[in-house]
Design a protein around this nucleic acid. Structure first.
Lengths: 351, 351
DNA sequence: ACATAGGATGGTTGCGCAAACAAATGTGAC
DNA sequence: GTCACATTTGTTTGCGCAACCATCCTATGT
């Protein structure tokens, strides 16, 4: 309970929080000098710096970020808004973001919109209240108010994941429509002709993939909406199994392949094929999306679409920093859309 | 670029940030009244509140959190420190945390220690600088300085994941030693006697599991260190395959089961068994840890240990709130260790 | 020895907000 | 209509820090 025993880092001085002034008094210098030491200014003599450093660790001084931000209006904060934490996809995006932000001594403020534009707007308001120096948001489906707030904030804003119609500022992502279309074309080329789709959650990106997929099938006159099965609930392997069964029931077996809106669903479908003694890929083709690591280790290995998640996060963060420090002679023609692309990985679950 | 077109939420008034005062002037009231409206105080007359609300949305006012925190020393912030973002395990813990924090209007500050106590100490310092009202950290291996800072901070601190020797404050988790021991006992009971272990990363919790596992095998005189293969690199399915091959080579096949420190490794091992034509579970048993969703869908389904990740995050957050609002007549005897337990799930990858 | 430049250090102020107290307004009983 | 009291609104102040400018050293050249 009591920390009186600890002789280092006694963060409270008779109950009060330790401030710059306390450290200054202890070190026999002025408050601003302590501030300079804390912020690593060059012009502080070595012996002074040593005295101050000693006082800091003796008192366990921790600078008050709020006061610092208020006084300097520099926050070293980046706001990040994603729709889900339980989705592996965002995980790796986040890893990319943190990988760049961390070493630059920037802190990430993470908010979760739960796929709801209303919650997203609330979160944007909250994030902006913390005076972030940059913002990364998912997709382009913000409410008008949210977009207005982002624009007015005056800080770099990156919309990631999607190719966005008219970006607020910077856009890093790829066309899910094109990806869905590419899958459809590839499956057709592999002589599947009664191709279904199963999708869960159906967020804007999933819808785009479906739209691209449909447009190609429609062009080849082999689109049958009976073969499109969706469900608003979250994705999972179990959901994939369920949706696959639904698909087979709805089409009475008149279906020879399925494009699953992500790999979790696809793994569930694959599992279900095995149970129903449907041979993959000869009788039936299965293609997922995202290329999670398990895809390559499934039996048979799962065809999927690889997208550069980590890269998206990393690039988004880098672009913010480029904006923040135009010094670094980046002769970037300030292209505001970075296409991170995608790659079809046709493995053994398709012909 | 320009946002002059937007007639809602014009966040900047000729370049300046919109403040309480601006809103106050516009609404014809005092600044503090605006503050009261923003903070939902009861004693504001309806017509005044309406005027203020109108002015707020007209100007696109967003309260400055830093100023608010500085003035009130209430931050509505919870600091969370985890060792990795790419680990599914922490994902679900986070989900539990956000699920409780969000509705209570608390913001989560997430920091990543990359499994390094030094980075962890730095992150704790950073987090404490933001005046969080509570802190959630992973495990109990903080540096002395870090522990001193946490103690001195005066806010509730929850150590999660592990059962910690001497908790700083509150502890929510389970004994990884016991879990490892339980797996060993179960495998022995299933007549496996040459049981190996493969582990990656080898963080404190993994080590505890290994220690528990070893202690049981040693007690039965069937511990052979040749069968313990570890690697400091991160876990992955691919790493599981590699380690499994290493194990088989090192033991020259004199091994009839393996406890994998997590399910990713186990899935890799399972995959490798198939390639090497080793029959699971009759010839060889495989047991993982964590019970990720894929475990149940593997072929054969993977034996694993289920741990209540979501629950850990949720409980940790709830306990912080109980501390913060002792009002809610919680007759909790202020137990400072909550055991979230674990459950052996023996499926088809073991006898 | 002295002047001078340039680097190191200090004092004052204000960032935007809410706490604490003060004032004004409204309400009800008589 | 008046008074006492509750409710609503306003004024002043300080949170902890860094920007800004002033002042003080120190080293160098002459």
């Amino acid at each position: 309970m009591s920390s009186k025993s600890s002789n280092l880092s006694v963060q409270s001085l008779n109950g009060q929080r330790v401030t710059l002034k306390d450290v200054a008094k202890k070190a026999g210098v002025s408050a601003i000098t302590v501030s300079r030491v804390v912020n690593d200014y060059a012009g502080v003599r070595e012996n002074v710096r040593a005295k101050v450093t000693a006082a800091i660790s003796e008192l366990g001084y921790i600078p008050n970020r709020s006061a610092s931000i208020l006084a300097s209006s520099r926050s070293k904060l980046i706001g990040v808004l994603i729709p889900s934490l339980s989705n592996v996809v965002f995980n790796e995006v986040l890893r990319g973001i943190y990988e760049i932000a961390g070493p630059a001594n920037y802190q990430v403020l993470l908010a979760n919109s739960h796929y709801s534009p209303i919650e997203e707007e609330r979160s944007i308001r909250t994030l902006l209240g913390q005076s972030p120096e940059g913002l990364i948001v998912t997709g382009g489906e913000q409410t008008d108010t949210a977009k207005a707030m982002l624009t007015a904030s005056g800080v770099p804003v990156v919309q990631i994941m999607d190719k966005v119609e008219s970006p607020i500022d910077i856009n890093v992502g790829f066309s899910h429509f094109d990806a869905g279309a590419a899958v459809a074309r590839s499956l057709l080329a592999q002589s599947y002709h009664k191709i279904g789709f199963i999708g869960a959650r159906m967020d804007p990106r999933t819808c785009d993939r479906l739209a691209g997929f449909k447009s190609v099938l429609a062009g080849e006159n082999c689109l049958d909406l009976k073969r499109v099965i969706t469900n608003p609930q979250p994705s999972s392997v179990a959901m994939g199994a369920t949706l696959f069964r639904t698909l087979m029931a709805a089409t009475e077996g008149d279906c020879d392949a399925v494009f699953c809106c992500n790999d979790d669903l696809a793994l569930g479908a694959l599992h279900e094929c095995k149970k129903m003694h449907i041979n993959v890929p000869s009788e039936f083709g299965v293609c997922g999306f995202n290329d999670i690591e398990m895809a390559a280790y499934a039996e048979p290995s799962l065809s999927s679409v690889s997208v550069n998640r980590y890269e998206m996060g990393k690039r988004a963060m880098e672009l913010i920093f480029e904006r923040l420090n135009p010094s670094e002679i980046s002769t970037h023609t300030s292209e505001n859309y970075i296409n991170t692309g995608f790659e079809l990985l046709m493995r053994k679950s398709t012909r």
